[in-house]
Design a protein around this nucleic acid. Structure first.
Lengths: 157, 157
DNA sequence: TTTTACTTTTAGAATGATTCTAATATTTTA
DNA sequence: TAAAATATTAGAATCATTCTAAAAGTAAAA
């Protein structure tokens, strides 16, 4: 379980490199963000959160794992999945599944938004919910609670 | 490969039951539909097409397999998947992947349409493309070629 | 502190949908 | 009919993700 703690706890920061000291959030900033979300800030969680919140762009679990291995030297793939589940549970990130991709992608944007898939690069771009208007005519017994949209296309150079 | 043939060919119709003689298409109708699409009408293909085109409602491969086993007595799961691929390749059906489901669903509607997921029953309902209007404001370099929408909600009794 | 109770991390096994492989059966063409 | 092509099959392989059960780490109680 992930429980709130009044104060953070000591971490074995021995093997911490500071590849990100210059980009994204600092360890401290990430740490308090985790605490804010009720997540105990272990080293692995801080590092993964740092990547997810500051550096990554719609990464897959595999990409996160690869990055984390470089960063931490050694981490279990199970930890990556466990941590991602925890982050999702606690509302730090969301996950998306796309028809064109057999892997889940993780997204640090927590607002309601959509995605554009560049079919050339396979890269994802965010589409703000404000840039979209949807009108739907259905029999009134269909009560729509939410909808997902994925746009596919190319990006002109 | 699936090649056009001038005429149909003999099938071992020995074990054919006619559970569907009263609903959906007849074997003959299905057979010519297959031929129209350049698909050699084997017994397995006819039966699966009969199910997909006339009886099934957004089935998964598993459901198709289960039905086919009852209908044909014996059929390989690989045949089900092979046949579905063939049907898709030849434009007889489409496949859809949904975020809420870990299996592909197969759809005999070939027009552009969308889906509504009833979160109570998990059942899918078709949404005609005409019942939807989407306005999108993106930077002009984003050239949208297509989009998928999935609506989620409940159906009032 | 020291003990005790939790929580986190881990390696590797398990799962489950789908695809692959390579052999056999069936059908078409020559 | 023989030869060539296509279809079907059982079972193995794949691959992302989840599960399991043990080991390591951390916090709170005594």
């Amino acid at each position: 379980m992930v429980k709130k703690t009044k104060s953070g706890f000591k971490k074995n920061t021995d093997s911490v490199s500071n590849a990100f000291s210059r980009s994204g959030m600092s360890m401290q900033e990430v740490e308090s963000k985790l605490v804010d979300h009720g997540i105990q800030p272990s080293l692995q969680r801080i590092k993964l959160a740092q990547y997810l919140l500051g550096k990554a762009d719609h990464p897959t679990a595999e990409q996160i794992y690869t990055w984390a291995q470089k960063e931490l030297g050694k981490i279990s793939l199970a930890t990556v999945y466990n941590t991602l589940s925890t982050f999702i549970e606690c509302g730090l990130i969301q996950e998306f599944k796309f028809p064109h991709l057999d892997q889940v992608i993780y997204d640090c944007r927590m607002d309601h938004h959509f995605h554009f898939v560049d079919t050339k690069s396979q890269r994802l771009h965010d589409v703000d919910s404000g840039s979209l208007r949807v009108q739907l005519k259905l029999p009134k017994k269909f009560l729509v609670e939410k909808f997902d949209i994925v746009f596919k296309g190319v990006i002109e150079d």
